[in-house]
Computed example of a mutant assay.
Amino acid sequence: MYLASSNGIVSVKNNEITPVVYFDYPQGMDRVPYTADPQYGYHIKPQRLGKFNDGSFILGDRFDGVYLLMKNGSSYDFYLPEMTKKAYLIGRN
């Protein structure tokens, strides 16, 4: 099982918790990441988590934002996917 928090993503297997990804602020910001008093408007507060076959992750936050952590060798690249301005209804005619 994989779990996500504001600190990153961990795997849980056989009662052992292993860190997989640690979330950090962009280079140049002199601050400890994800403290209780947010200073910036882009804290990641995951509520949903999915994993792709290649080891990449997709996260949904509590404000319905979507974030991608694309596997890149032994690390991950962070992406904010572009969203279309047109809404689509799924499952309705």
Rank of each mutant, 00 (worst) to 15 (best):
S56T: 02
L80I: 09
T35H: 15
V66L: 12
T35Q: 15
N15G: 12
D37Q: 06
P46G: 06
K71P: 07
H43R: 10
L80C: 06
T35A: 15
G28L: 09
G73N: 01
L68M: 12
A36R: 10
R62A: 12
Y2H: 07
Y34D: 10
D54V: 05
N14I: 04
S75L: 08
N15M: 07
K71A: 11
K71Q: 09
G60T: 12
D61L: 01
M29N: 10
M1S: 13
M1R: 05
R92G: 06
D24C: 09
M70R: 12
K86E: 13
K45S: 13
S6T: 10
N93W: 03
G8M: 08
K85T: 04
V66R: 02
Y79C: 05
P38F: 03
L3V: 15
N7H: 11
S74E: 09
N7S: 15
L89C: 11
G8A: 09
A87M: 07
Q39S: 11
G28E: 03
F52S: 13
I9F: 10
D64L: 01
N72A: 06
K86L: 05
G55L: 00
G55V: 10
Y76H: 05
P26Q: 08
N53G: 09
D24W: 03
L80S: 14
L59S: 03
L80G: 12
G73V: 07
K13P: 09
L49Y: 03
A36K: 08
D24L: 02
N14K: 15
I17N: 01
A4H: 02
R31E: 14
M1D: 10
G91V: 06
I17H: 02
Q27V: 13
S6R: 07
P19H: 00
M83T: 10
K51D: 03
D54S: 07
Y76A: 00
A87S: 14
V12L: 14
D61T: 11
A87E: 02
F63C: 07
Y76E: 04
N93K: 13
V32T: 14
I44F: 15
T84P: 09
S6M: 08
Q39W: 07
D54C: 09
D54A: 02
